[in-house]
Design a binder for these strands. Structure first.
Lengths: 226, 226
DNA sequence: TAATTGTTCTTCGTATACACTTTGTCCGGA
DNA sequence: TCCGGACAAAGTGTATACGAAGAACAATTA
């Protein structure tokens, strides 16, 4: 009850535009709306059961985030990530996640490390169960958690946005990420626990290299993105 | 004329919401709207002479960009960058601009280098004239130009946004940036021209270190940002 | 003084209207 | 058949109005 009150003080009723934005993002990432597809305001409004205003506001933010492109007087279309984009995104992610790993190593508390280890355990378990969806989800959670531990809000929000886009491109390409090499993750968490920034950074870079290599293999088959 | 036609094909009549967004950004960066200041939709609509709709859309984007904070059912207030933010921003900028310098070194054409040198010359000249505003402007242009040369749109847009925020914090703090050490810039451009990625990266890092040191000195006096 | 109530301001969402562009279609003429 | 222009349809861009609900502040009451 006390928690309810505290929540109510600030807010709790998240605006429709935010719900629309979230729904739009996931719809695009999941491929429900394909690149190049036209997104008229009326259509989105109908799809989400709201009026045009919340839709418009969500669209502007989605544009700023790079999920849609808005052509003046023509409306919005889902953005079309090109193969060049993958290289570019990984180049930036490399730097950012290396920094995040370093900061996390320098700042992680025992509780932080424990939470990372817990994710690692769940990941191993899910891998054994061959629950690929869960594995991918845990992978995301782990990376996001490290960003959070880094304690740099800018880093966190930028990398998070990049991460979403990478996921998007992945889904467009191959069905699902390959079975993750949790060994790399363990290396990374070990390094963070050690408090050795250099080592953490190296571990992050190694992991990213492997991930980007996998990305290219996946991309080979090709996303039908024109 | 051919250019006019090409422009007309796509568009030319940039929407009110974009004009409002641009005006809002500069108003915040210039300190016309101070951190913590309340920005009601009606007030902004009146200030810019438009209806509430374009204002709302501009506000959402400004929120996504971190210039304003929107409290549910309370409205928007200008964001309040704290001293921690400066450290965080520079940590990210360091990585990003180092990457940009490396990419620029690897990809710069002769024409690119020439345009950088031209900016350098103008900068030196403006410094001699003690035209500080122009110096600051040329400094911005130079950095943005390097980002553009890097050819990585993600890097470019992220770093650009960070750059805007840094400027904002600067203006809040001290009146104007100290007379720039163009020597560092020359080092950087030399390194880019040489095509040596490592060297360019080092030069960028050196420059950022100096800039962040200067930032702290300036910040010492204190931005009255509560 | 402290708690409660009421008032006011403002956001949030909806609905509507209309000008203006872009696009697509149709039709007549060469 | 092919071309060109008139015409209609679709959709964005902007403005405006209105009701509901939350938050802040003032006034009132115990």
């Amino acid at each position: 009850m006390a928690e309810d009150l505290r929540d109510k003080l600030g807010a709790q009723h998240l605006p429709l535009r935010d719900q629309v934005l979230a729904a739009l993002r996931t719809a695009i990432i999941d491929g429900d709306y394909l690149p190049g597809e036209r997104l008229t305001e009326d259509r989105l409004a109908e799809d989400f059961g709201v009026s045009r205003n919340p839709v418009r506001e969500a669209l502007r933010v989605a544009e700023a985030e790079g999920f849609v492109v808005i052509l003046p007087r023509r409306g919005a279309v889902v953005a079309s990530p090109s193969s060049g984009t993958i290289t570019d995104m990984f180049a930036v992610r490399e730097r950012l996640e290396a920094l995040a790993a370093r900061l996390a190593a320098e700042r992680a508390t025992a509780a932080d490390v424990a939470s990372l280890r817990a994710l690692l355990d769940q990941g191993r378990e899910a891998t054994q169960r061959h629950d690929l969806a869960r594995v991918a989800e845990l992978n995301s959670t782990l990376h996001l958690r490290i960003l959070q531990i880094s304690g740099n809000p800018w880093l966190s929000s930028i990398a998070k946005s990049l991460y979403l886009h990478v996921q998007w491109v992945f889904r467009l390409g191959a069905a699902e990420r390959a079975p993750h090499s949790w060994a790399e993750h363990i290396q990374l968490v070990d390094a963070i626990e050690s408090g050795d920034g250099d080592r953490a950074e190296r571990a992050a870079l190694d992991h990213l290299d492997a991930a980007s290599a996998a990305a290219y293999e996946n991309a080979e088959g090709g996303y039908g993105v024109r």
